[in-house]
Write a protein that binds this DNA or RNA. Structure first.
Length: 296
DNA sequence: AACACCGCCTGAGCGC
DNA sequence: TGCGCTCAGGCGGTGT
């Protein structure tokens, strides 16, 4: 389940093969995975019959014939920027993967491959695949950088660098549970269910605490915890729970460091009390009833 | 306006 | 062994 740290690992792992490379082949195997300019607002219909190339995709939208100049990330979104100015925005959703393999390697059949590119850096071609069994992820074709910036304007600061001041501004006046705020990408970009629980534990805050009830010191502690927890996850290669690997197929080890996520009922690593498990903000949530105070 | 909640989608894991 | 159920969860759309 890729959150910000996992997407950052993917970005780093595919960057060497992609930046400076020219896209010499592009195929979209499922039309509904891509939202291109002119598609219905809210994206292509995901209903029956949406599969397949029912409507031709402008090949430029898939960056065919263009050179990749940068791979940029904000939160869970990964932008492939071409020299034409066009951008292909990748969201991995729950089970999405980007995989790069040398073109010479024997073609293994990879189920749920929805898009496939051949890129050439001059020193040999490589194949890039977008694979996503559950299809919560997708691709968005943007015509220029301005469109990317407009889109990213809706995101909060990235989790790796969120400041206490920015978080305080976003939590002020909100009565919703602080965990719900953390999962809102407009508040902090890149935090998902795993790192929300981990950061709240690290900051000693109950996930159901109304956002506005947390004092200044607590908010600063929380911002620092978000930065620390996500930075450590990046350093550990990301959390591999089920499907996640980086762009080379390498799993991460950050899951071995989780102190609350997936540990409901087990002993708190800090105080030994049994961790509680419940639903907060419609998500499975684990917290320590002793270390994380009360919801009020 | 702010927030709650649903539905999308497939595979893993479980109980019977 | 095998079937069918539940669960996982990001996010956009709709409802309150």
């Amino acid at each position: 389940m890729p959150e910000g740290p996992e997407v950052e690992r993917v970005r780093r792992s595919v960057e060497p093969a992609l930046v400076g490379a020219r896209v010499v082949g592009a195929r979209l195997l499922r039309r509904d995975v891509l939202t291109a300019p002119g598609d219905p607002p809210g994206g292509w219909s995901r209903g029956r019959g949406a599969a397949g190339p029912a409507r031709p995709v402008p090949r430029a939208a898939m960056l065919l014939g263009q050179s990749i100049v940068a791979l940029e990330r904000r939160g869970k979104q990964l932008a492939i920027v071409a020299d034409s100015g066009r951008v292909l925005l990748v969201h991995l959703g729950m089970t999405g993967r980007l995989l790069v393999t040398p073109a010479g390697e024997p073609e293994r059949s990879m189920p749920h491959t929805h898009a496939r590119w051949v890129v050439d850096r001059g020193d040999g071609a490589a194949v890039l695949r977008f694979i996503d069994p559950r299809r919560f992820g997708g691709l968005w074709a943007l015509v220029d950088r301005a469109a990317l910036e407009a889109r990213w304007r809706g995101l909060g600061p990235d989790a790796l660098e969120v400041s206490g001041r920015a978080l305080a501004g976003a939590l002020a006046g909100s009565r919703r549970p602080v965990k719900a705020a953390l999962l809102d990408q407009g508040v902090v970009a890149g935090v998902g269910n795993i790192y929300a629980d981990e950061a709240l534990f690290a900051a000693g805050l109950h996930p159901a605490r109304p956002s506005a009830s947390i004092d200044r010191r607590g908010v600063w502690r929380l911002a620092a915890a978000i930065r620390r927890v996500t930075a450590r996850a990046v350093a550990a290669g990301g959390s591999t729970i089920r499907d996640y690997t980086d762009g080379q197929g390498t799993p991460g080890r950050a899951q071995e460091r989780h102190r609350v996520y997936g540990r409901g009922g087990r002993a708190c690593v800090r105080c030994g009390v049994a961790l509680e498990c419940g639903i907060v903000a419609q998500r499975t949530t684990v917290w320590c009833p002793a270390c994380q105070g009360s919801a009020w």
